[in-house]
Design a protein around this nucleic acid. Sequence first.
DNA 1: TATTGCTTGTTCTCTTGTTCACAAACTCGC
DNA 2: GCGAGTTTGTGAACAAGAGAACAAGCAATA
Lengths: 228, 228
Amino acid sequence: MPGPSAAVPDATVERLPLYHQVLADLAREGETTVSSVRLAELAGVNAAKVRKDLSFLGSYGTRGVGYDVEFLMLQVQRTLGLTGDARVVIVGFGNLGQALANYGGFGERGFPVTAIVDADPDKIGTQVPRSDANGESATERVVVEHVERLAEVVRDHKITVGVIATPQHAAQAAADALVAAGIQSILSFAPVVLDVPESVPWRKVDLATELQILSFYQARSGSLQHPA
Amino acid sequence: MPGPSAAVPDATVERLPLYHQVLADLAREGETTVSSVRLAELAGVNAAKVRKDLSFLGSYGTRGVGYDVEFLMLQVQRTLGLTGDARVVIVGFGNLGQALANYGGFGERGFPVTAIVDADPDKIGTQVPRSDANGESATERVVVEHVERLAEVVRDHKITVGVIATPQHAAQAAADALVAAGIQSILSFAPVVLDVPESVPWRKVDLATELQILSFYQARSGSLQHPA
DNA sequence: TATTGCTTGTTCTCTTGTTCACAAACTCGC
DNA sequence: GCGAGTTTGTGAACAAGAGAACAAGCAATA
């Protein structure tokens, strides 16, 4: 029996959000129970892999029955450390930053955009409607602040996640500022490798990278299959 | 000696765009040559891994010297199948779709947004400035068309890549429409597992997923290191 | 041309991840 | 209470990937 905080393999961690998503869909449809086979179908992975992944969280299934959807969802959340909302600050209010700010996807999934900063004085003061987990709360708005106030803003709003949406050349400076402000993790949209302390996990999302990978599998299509 | 079209491991394919990005930066700075050690530093990976990855493309380094930056970049492009521009259609002109359309990042990196479609009649006719590899060409614009004209648009503009920026519930229909229109690969921002033919490679970009993965490593921060 | 110094390409070993296969365990119907 | 049918959890075999180590090969210099 792996204890609640036993080591979870990296490959499993990367799949947990997918399972969480599928479980949320099932719960919304009123399903109370799900088998590893069905979960695997919906997630597009092998059933044995699902069972092994879930076994790292603990032994929460019932043989002959399957897993309780709601309960399993809670266990996934616990394992991922999704305890309540984690507030987000977006650095950079250009095209991408504005897009991310208006995109409701963050707040709906437990990561409300609580602050936005930019270096351009012309952008300071711009207001963006704020949507959190409860949907749109029309009265609340997020105001763009100057990047110099970042540390203050992070402290005052108890923000833990930083999103970098600056141009490539400003990304490292943004990362440095976020780390100095005491942010706990960073998601970057700039196509550069960031230099941050090991204690601050970060990930990169680069759309061109994704398209280039697709390009490879497209060229090989028919003979090779792309990986999930 | 691995021939030009020998099998390239999936893990290598996923890193090639990163190397390409680093090589492009080096070229911009006027560097003509780079060693595996330096390339590894800049890409944030192990040097032996870099050499092994590159050896799958062919034997293009010079012992005692390193790799020719420009030439290696060409080899990476060839391996990824990046032959000229691959035109993109965005399906869905909501918050996210508008964001992606205005975001120059696609065109600058060889994936010009050539068409946009949406199901909402109110959005048809909206114009978006078009930016391609040569930067902003102010005169050219992309006009939002109705999704029913998708097949026609894809054919007329020789579009090969589809980007799904619809709400979750419309994503599968969008994928079906893209496949029917003869698209060659799909990048989806909807948090669902798509059902498409094996011949059409697709990838999912989900921001909440990324943040949830970060959440795990943040909770473990100090003891465990996140992967790349 | 020989020597020195550097860097690649590759082999080998170790670790991680995937999948199969099956015993253990549970439910349901009779 | 028992047997039939399911489904989990995991051991074991297999595949893929990572990294260390080093021989082979090239450049530069004398």
